[in-house]
Design a protein around this nucleic acid. Structure first.
Lengths: 206, 206, 206, 206
DNA sequence: TGATAATCGAGACGGTACGTCCAGTCTTCTC
DNA sequence: GAGAAGACTGGACGTACCGTCTCGATTATCA
């Protein structure tokens, strides 16, 4: 899936026929992004995408096998506001993760993000063959962002983390995603406990 | 949705007309269960359920508003093998959770469970109004099973748990669900770390 | 094909389900007639018929297998101006057939009839399974009209016809249809010869 | 359409660029003939022709305006077995026409010819602008074949024919074509009557 | 006991979207 | 320039389900 293009351009020297229109590709992806934000994955239709993009339906089917495929590429290409970056680094892991959580749940409450996450999970659930792709597009970035911050912390303060940074990122990411999926608000107690998980409180007061 | 039947039978004093057929209700639910296991939520259709059940489509629409509603009741009524119970209690929390994880991922690898979980999450994702219902049908039972075991442990060995039983159950449950959703296999290292999370290893060797 | 309805109504006692909508049937047929006259069989589409009729496409496909089937029933039901009746009977066969020819070719030149005939022949040619139906709807009526007039003549003046009335009707009908199909105008000489075929001129002057 | 090639070569003074490929032209025509016999005019597509011929679709469109045009040229070039020649001349007109009819209807029953005739009539009916071309390719040859035989007869036995040879050819041809179009078998009685039409039986026994 | 009323099966209805096919046109590189 | 390749817009195809709507038949309560 990831290695369709040859590293050596000499191997694919002269594709014949009219080349694929990059303009059409972009029109499809931006249209999909637009409609995704408006109506979610469930109300997304291939016909709708084609119409919004001003493109023939066949052009969509020529390059993508399903709307899930379109959505995946839409995200991978960054046409949808990927819900999150990892936490900032101010030196205080606990505060950083706290701010990150508040930012995410804030975005969710504001609207689009929740629908987006739900849409992506729907895409994931409905197209098992694209599970890996959506995982790569949605979930891994979040967990990777977390992991980077955790690794930083581990380097800075060896022994400060209660367990492996990767595992922590995996766990915290899963927890956050599921709560977003269920539309849960950010509860103070839950957040405290999550913070304790990644950065045992010691004597701090939050 | 949840309060259709009145607690006081005197309030619903012998409705006139032909009463609802319990037989049809059951035929619908078992048909839905059958089709769910075969094709997943995405390939489930109201027409298919009605046909499989030998029931008129209108009968489905009369009593359920959508296929998600049917699925929810199917699970609630126990016609679908709910993926998991909580862990057993043998006195050794770590061993219990370990066995529980192996059982779950074993079932997933065997086949139907993965599709089922994915189907339910799809239902959840596609029908926000039923999110609570599916949460209640799928996620809470898992987390509740975990919580009960954790509470037991906390009572038995105060201070043994690194954090609140409810929070632990929430976290572990989310992590497990997401991994199932993604079709991940059970990795030894990940499991060890998860076990460390709920039952710090001490000197034990697994 | 011709005997779907039972002569004994007791044999088809209780069709279940919602009965077929006669209104929809008529809307489809009149819409088809309208579009047929406007654009001919080639530009006729099932989608167009459905839209013009204000009917779901599936309703067309439920009752007719193709646009040819719709057209056949449209004619059979008399929603299209059947190109011709047989010749009148004024007592003078030659004059009657002459008038008949002029009427037909007049209609053709005026416009719609030619397109109609061509359309029907196209339908016939494109759908061999409906050949019989279109034959029954278009060709046989013409030949039957001719035959009736010829039979009348044969009864009135035994020996006046040069050959069997049925055969004469077949031959003349075929000739006329093919000329219409080709868009030929009515040539005087050809007509004279055709008239001679059915009613040898004797001493008459036309 | 009929005068693409100039009679005077001086008028077309050495066109520049690559000359038209005769090989491609032939590949298209033979491919069209092949597909025509297989599936009839209705299933014939320009894309199919191009693919079967190993030629770019554009090459077809460059030189022919429609699939009907291709078919016409296919016939004109003799790549399709033109259904019939005129009747042989053995001196006995009645026997000759009889043999001719039996040959034609025999070919029809054997298979391809009927489809072919139907296909051509469909082409004719669906593309009014090519009516003349198909008339020239299919109908006129038949009628011309008949006419020649009739003319011969008229020269040999003046007064033997009941009417003008051209008219007879027109009438008989139309009748035969329509019967083929309808898939009718060759009926003895009809044939006898047709023979009577062109060669009054006198005392003969067939 | 018969009228009333709601459910049941069946299945047709207006719709929306599907995924495919083909028409004709356009764009690129090669001969 | 012709030609092969093949992507492009456009539009109809025939199918699958949606959720709604009659039907006749059934099964209860109520008068």
């Amino acid at each position: 899936m990831s290695a369709e293009q040859s590293p050596d351009p000499a191997e694919e020297p002269a594709r014949r026929g009219r080349p694929r229109s990059e303009a059409s590709r972009l029109k499809v992806l931006t249209a999909a992004a637009r409609l995704m934000v408006e109506g979610g994955f469930e109300h997304l239709t291939v016909e709708g995408i084609a119409a919004e993009a001003g493109v023939a339906k066949q052009t969509v089917y020529r390059w993508w096998g399903s709307k899930a495929d379109v959505v995946v590429e839409t995200i991978a290409d960054g046409h949808l506001p990927t819900p999150v970056e990892g936490p900032e680094d101010t030196g205080d892991l606990r505060a950083d993760v706290r701010a990150w959580l508040e930012e995410i749940f804030g975005a969710v409450e504001l609207g689009d993000t929740s629908r987006l996450v739900r849409a992506l999970l729907a895409a994931l659930a409905s197209a098992s063959e694209t599970a890996a792709a959506i995982n790569a597009a949605l979930i891994e970035p979040i967990q990777e962002g977390l992991r980077e911050r955790f690794v930083l912390e581990a380097q800075r303060r060896p022994g400060a983390l209660p367990s492996d940074p990767g595992f922590l990122a995996d766990t915290v990411g899963a927890s956050v995603l599921l709560h977003i999926m269920l539309g849960d608000p950010l509860e103070q107690q839950w957040m405290q406990q999550l913070l304790d998980l990644v950065a045992p409180a010691g004597s701090r007061l939050d």
